[in-house]
Each structure stands twice: as structure tokens, then as C-alpha cells.
Nucleic acid binder design. Structure first.
Lengths: 202, 202
DNA sequence: AGGACTGATGTGACTAACTGGCGTATCGTA
DNA sequence: TACGATACGCCAGTTAGTCACATCAGTCCT
């Protein structure tokens, strides 16, 4: 679909981007994130190092790019929520819709396992998910008639993000159920107990 | 007191450490964290760069060293709690005891302001505080007769750390009350609403 | 005191993640 | 086809962080 509308130039760019990511992931899985240099990835993907940097700002982003996309996805789902519920319910529903499908899970899992197994990447992932709190709070605030710095709202969002963090980590390690959705459903119910969860969400 | 028991060697080492930190902070405040190189700090403190690296593993640690100490402090307070309460109460009490005294707050504030104003440092601080969750959970788990991977317990700890994060950030920016203790007291009450907060803490 | 041990410092060489500039080739478009 | 935009390769430079080695000051034992 989209490939038809894209010019040759953009297709090549995306192909490059994909080639970089897949080669990088392969090398990282083989030799460990810290033991593969950007030069080696460039070599293996038959590209110059500067092309890599043009597509991915940092080495970590080679692995974490998907995660950034998933932030956008979550924000989109939340923004599309019709409202007319409590925030807690809205977050729960959004999260359940956000969980990847079973086959997408399979693709993600090895990548996530790499992240969890690499301290630097795990830290970056945590940091990244913590970074979701601000935009989510910004999205929630007006619809709950609270400010973006409202403490209870911030705590609610933080708990949401923390729950995502915990689930993802446990899921990647294999402690969670095979279908991450079941696990998520149970996990997120704790959100309901926060006082701010009872706020109207319009 | 302690200075008497320390030999000249250790005193010099600590003096170096202190000199490095203060010069670094001064330069960072003046020119911005990203615009000061380790070499410049070494020059200004009349030391070699390798001495800096020996005392602080990364450049960020020059600023965040205090925060690492405060983690130890919090863990110590929690470990020293007599027990016989719910986890929620224990955490609340520990947190109130953990809040620095008014004059210590003043010293910390400019440092924290630097962190909050520097994206790289803010991210590292968040990451660091998220890193507290594991040891806190590890300390809590046996006294609550839960495992370290217990979901509710992890969520409780995560909410605690998130609250700390939020309070510190708001306090540094100046949105919080002058005495961070008052703010903390209000903030942490949200912890009480989590189901795991009712667990016995022995 | 004096001599041996320990440990911190300085020096210099090295790796690798980025950054920015510049010429060139390729693609979209008038 | 000619022109403008954009991505790529190449390259030179900056800087964080590591490592090995020599040196020197403190400590401790005799």
C-alpha cells in the first residue's frame, strides 16, 4: 500500500533503515551489544557509518526504535478514546488495545530479550518509558480537568508506566504468561485503586 | 570525628574527591554540563583526568554522586524499621525520616536544579531512581512474605520511587512547598491506596 | 629510623561514539 | 532535459572512557 505512494528515494531510505536495524540486531544477538561497533554494523550492512547515524541518533536507538514507535501507538489509542469513563478505566482499555497481537509478540520477544539482557539497553528502556509519563499526563490532564503537574495524576501515569515496564521485563524474561494480554489485564487492575483513577475522563 | 581516625592518605583522597566534585559543579553551573569536558575539570582542579575517572566512573556521576548516597540512606532507614506495620505505613514513615533537613535541602537544591535543567542528567536521575526499585523490593519482599517478583509489591515500590521522582523534580523547579517534607507527606498518601500496601511488614 | 608493602596519582596510547563539513550521485520535478 | 533537493560516502575532529606502566607518597613492620 504505502510502498506504491512512496518514491524510489524514500523506498531506498526505508530499505536502508530496515537493513541497518536487522543487521545490527543480528550482530548484537550473536556477539552482544557492547561487542559490536557501529563500524562493524556498517560493514556488514554494506553502508557507511554516517548513514547509520543519519537514521538512528544513537547506537541504542538501533534496538529501541520499535519502542519509540509503540509510544506513539499508545498515545494515539489514548487520544482516540471516546471518553465518558473514569481515567482508570480509560487507561485499562487503552492498554489492552495497545498490547501487540500474538504474532507481533513473537517478533518482539527476542528483541526485548536482548534489551533485558543488556544492562545499558535495559536502563535506556526504563528511561524511555519513564519519558512517556510526561506526554501521557499532558494528554490526560485537559480531559480530566486537572493540570499537567497535578500530583495525583502524575502518580497515576507513573504507575501506569511502571506497570508497563514491569510487565515487559517479566514477559521478556519468560515469567509472564505466554499471552502478555492476560498478564496485563491482571496487572493493570492495581491502577484502579489510586484515588485519581476515579476522575472523570471526557 | 572520622577525620581523626582516617590516615593522611585517605584524607587526601577524600579531599581530592571533594575538590573534583565542587570544581565540576561550579564549571557545570557556569557553562552547562555539556560544555565542560573532563579535561577542563581536571585542569581547573589541578588534577589529572585519570584521577577523576578513578573517583567517578562517569561524567554524570560527578553530579549524581549524592543521589547514590541517598539511595543507601533510604535502604538503611527501611532496613532499620522495627516492623509491625503495613508496608504502606512503613514506607511512609521511612520516607518522612529520609527527607533531608532544611539546611541540607538548601545545599541540595542548586545541584538538583542543575540536574533538572540538563536533559541528560534528568534522564540519568530518573533512570537511577528507577534502579532503586529492585533493591527496595528485595528488602521488602522477605518481610512481607512475598517474592521479589511479586507484581503487587513491584508496583508498590515503583509507585514509591515514582513519587520520589516527581517530588524531587517539582521541588527543584520550585513548584513544591519550601519544606519538601510537607509536600512528601501529602504525596505519599497515595501509596496507601494500593492493595499491596495493606500487607503486613515484619 | 629504615626498609618493604600498599595504593593513589600521572602519563600516554588507545577505542569507539558521535559531530560537522564537503563533494558527489541519485531522485523528483518543472 | 535541466534544476533543486536530499541522501550518501568520505574524512577530520572532539570527547568519554579504558588500560598498562612508571612514580611517588603513606603506612606498617622491624
Amino acid at each position: 500500500m504505502t510502498e506504491m505512494t512512496l518514491g524510489r528515494r524514500d523506498r531506498k531510505r526505508l530499505a536502508n533503515r530496515h537493513a541497518i536495524r536487522t543487521t545490527a540486531l543480528r550482530l548484537f544477538m550473536d556477539s552482544g551489544f557492547d561487542n559490536v561497533s557501529i563500524e562493524e554494523i556498517a560493514e556488514a550492512a554494506d553502508l557507511s557509518a554516517s548513514t547509520i547515524y543519519r537514521n538512528f541518533p544513537t547506537k541504542e536507538d538501533l534496538v529501541l526504535a520499535n519502542l519509540a514507535d509503540r509510544q506513539q501507538s499508545l498515545l494515539g489509542i489514548l487520544a482516540a478514546h471516546p471518553g465518558g469513563a473514569t481515567v482508570g478505566q480509560a487507561l485499562l482499555e487503552a492498554l489492552l488495545e495497545w498490547v501487540p497481537s500474538a504474532d507481533a509478540q513473537h517478533l518482539l520477544r527476542s528483541e526485548t530479550a536482548l534489551i533485558v539482557a543488556t544492562p545499558a539497553l535495559l536502563a535506556r528502556m526504563h528511561q524511555m518509558i519513564v519519558g512517556w509519563e510526561a506526554p501521557i499526563t499532558a494528554l490526560l490532564a485537559p480531559r480530566c480537568e486537572r493540570t499537567e503537574t497535578d500530583l495525583e495524576l502524575c502518580q497515576l501515569t507513573a504507575l501506569l508506566c511502571a506497570t508497563i515496564r514491569i510487565i515487559v521485563r517479566e514477559w521478556a524474561v519468560g515469567n509472564a504468561a505466554d499471552d502478555i494480554g492476560d498478564f496485563g489485564r491482571i496487572a493493570v487492575e492495581a491502577l484502579q485503586h489510586l484515588p485519581a483513577a476515579e476522575l472523570a475522563f471526557n
